[in-house]
């Protein structure tokens, strides 16, 4: 509304791509709380769920146009503008975790690639940042058991970004839908099976009501993170210290999101099993092998694009060096876990 006084706090309208009840709204709120406290109240954030102003998949357009000032989303949601978008979170898994890939973004040149894609290639009027390295995502929810790749062939399956191309490569038919539309789509038979992201989100939107078999561990989205988007004019008009707060709060929220995720995801996985009678499985080796094989087939396709080729080269180099160190340094955590909590997991 009109007449903003010089000293009045700036209000940032931030819309997410998540339904109001999703745990990721709480994650976004951890970010906005940090921004508000650190700015001493000079920056207020009006946090809105998906659909409040624009649809879940339209937040990038919304930020570009300035209909919203900021968005809390994932890069895979705008891969219709350029498939390269999906490399910032849902690209091929070379062996690195989400932490490995987020480190690539901050220390391995990823940030410059992201800038090049959004600014130079697509000419978007936005500034973006990445945060919160997510846990590897479940293969998802199925109405019946799926042991081999033949069991999933011909299914209509929901995922997003390059994971969609991957599953298509494996013989599934893929629909990409925002999180809030998954369960209604299952009820309407638009899809037969789906993955979203994690036990807490899945539990909250009622996955357990439409499917009873939950498969964890997968190579389709093993290294995703959140995308924080800002309308460029809005961002550049902020005072330099507020710009810094908006930027570094992403890093701060990354840690608090991780803690909240560990706490909730683990508790909700047990709740799904014990209270809702969901069968928790590990995805079979047959399907995991097929996923890697499918990535193999997909990568040369993606590398036909000059930009994607450069990004993938950079990611491969990073993972080759960094994950060598990670794997060499890591003890066998499963061994220790098995020692103290015998018989709980069978890997």
């Amino acid at each position: 509304a009109p007449a903003v006084l010089a000293q009045a706090p700036v209000t940032m309208k931030m819309q997410t791509s998540w339904p109001a009840s999703d745990i990721w709204m709480d994650f976004a709120r951890q970010y906005t709380e940090r921004v508000e406290v650190m700015s001493g109240g000079r920056l207020k954030v009006d946090l809105l769920p998906a659909g409040a102003v624009v649809a879940a998949f339209q937040v990038l357009d919304g930020c570009h146009d300035g209909v919203i000032d900021a968005a809390h989303s994932v890069c895979a949601y705008w891969y219709g503008k350029h498939k390269g978008a999906s490399l910032f979170g849902t690209g091929p898994v070379f062996g690195g975790s989400a932490t490995t890939m987020l480190s690539w973004y901050y220390a391995g040149g990823g940030q410059e690639f992201y800038r090049e894609l959004t600014q130079d290639i697509l000419g978007l009027n936005v500034v973006g940042m990445l945060g919160f390295p997510m846990f590897a995502q479940p293969f998802g929810w199925f109405k019946k058991e799926v042991a081999t790749v033949d069991d999933v062939k011909g299914m209509k399956y929901r995922t997003v970004g390059l994971a969609a191309d991957l599953m298509q490569q494996m013989g599934m038919s893929v629909a990409q839908l925002p999180g809030g539309e998954i369960v209604p789509a299952m009820e309407r038979s638009v899809i037969d099976a789906f993955e979203f992201n994690n036990p807490s989100s899945d539990l909250r939107f009622g996955a357990q009501d439409v499917a009873k078999h939950y498969y964890l561990s997968s190579y389709h989205q093993a290294s995703e993170c959140f995308e924080f988007l800002f309308n460029r004019d809005f961002y550049e008009d902020l005072d330099p210290d507020l710009q810094a707060i908006v930027r570094y709060a992403v890093e701060a929220a990354s840690t608090s999101n991780t803690a909240m995720a560990m706490d909730n995801y683990s508790a909700d996985l047990i709740k799904l099993k014990d209270e809702h009678g969901v069968n928790i499985h590990r995805t079979s080796k047959n399907i995991l092998d097929a996923e890697i094989k499918a990535w193999d087939d997909l990568i040369p396709e993606l590398e036909k694009d000059e930009f994607m080729k450069r990004v993938l080269d950079s990611q491969r180099q990073w993972v080759e060096r960094v994950t060598y160190y990670e794997l060499m340094a890591a003890p066998d955590y499963a061994l220790a876990y098995e020692h103290y909590f015998p018989g709980k997991v069978k890997l």
Binding site: G80, I121, Q176
Partner: peptide, 22 residues
């Protein structure tokens, strides 16, 4: 303005990997 931007990167639908132009 909305359409011309979409033309500039030959936008396809994000609903499926089929790459249906939009």
């Amino acid at each position: 303005k909305y359409a011309i931007r979409s033309w500039s990167y030959l936008e396809v639908s994000a609903n499926s990997p089929a790459g249906i132009p939009i």
